[in-house]
Design a protein around this nucleic acid. Structure first.
Lengths: 130, 130
DNA sequence: CCGTATCCGGAGGGATACTG
DNA sequence: CAGTATCCCTCCGGATACGG
């Protein structure tokens, strides 16, 4: 990367903003599930097990608001609502998957570092220096 | 804790876990600053202006715990402490930059979608509101 | 200079009950 | 089935003050 890449204020600001969207507890999981194809409300709810009805609603609203998913209502009885990733949503999914790959690749290393740190931060276990 | 298996949920589980690390309010900004080279505590604090002393400490601790940064103390007077990205931290930075690029590229589209949604999400202005 | 401890307001998010 | 509203509790994170 160049030392003076694009102009400054847009950078941190925007990235942080997007990470807030994606970094919440549920958005990514919902997006990933929707990556498999369009899904109904309770279908998603089952797949992302652990999520509450309330949170699923809020998460979907947020994603819809940002143009990442579309919401289609079929006025049948009983009502049927389908959620689907937009093009924008798909492109986000790709990027997120890259992060996911990183996470999986480095999972063990992180867990190990974490364990060591919690043990008492002992970087030199072979030398018994108190 | 599951008694017998760790195989299935590795995907969502791990990704969510990493995003929690990276998706908090400050971690990314700190990592980005550290990407420019090793920095001292108050140096980072100035660069990531807006962060409180407390939050910087907590953020750095978290990153250190996960093996993303190292903390080096020089026992001088006054004390000097340097933080630096590890190899793991650098590789994360690269992935995060990709997400940052996505954010910048799609910033306008998201903001526009958001504005439309807040306006009243009105794709069919004529006829009775369905 | 670097960090910790305490106080405290507000957002996030779960459980539940109700509506169309 | 899909969604809203309410209650409530936890944790995040800012301000401030103190210790090495």
């Amino acid at each position: 990367m160049s030392p003076s890449n694009i102009h400054v204020p847009t950078n941190c600001q925007t990235v942080t903003e997007i990470l807030s969207r994606v970094g919440d507890k549920w958005s990514v999981q919902v997006v990933v599930q929707l990556g498999e194809g369009p899904k109904r409300f309770n279908e998603i709810r089952r797949l992302v097990s652990g999520i509450s009805q309330r949170m699923l609603t809020l998460t979907l609203r947020g994603l819809e608001r940002d143009g990442l998913v579309t919401r289609t209502v079929y006025p049948t009885i009983p009502p049927k609502v389908e959620y689907q990733l937009t093009g924008l949503g798909c492109s986000l999914l790709k990027t997120v998957r890259a992060l996911g790959t990183w996470a999986i690749d480095n999972r063990d290393e992180i867990l190990e570092a974490r364990r060591r740190f919690d043990e008492g931060d002992d970087p030199k276990p072979h030398s018994n220096a108190a």
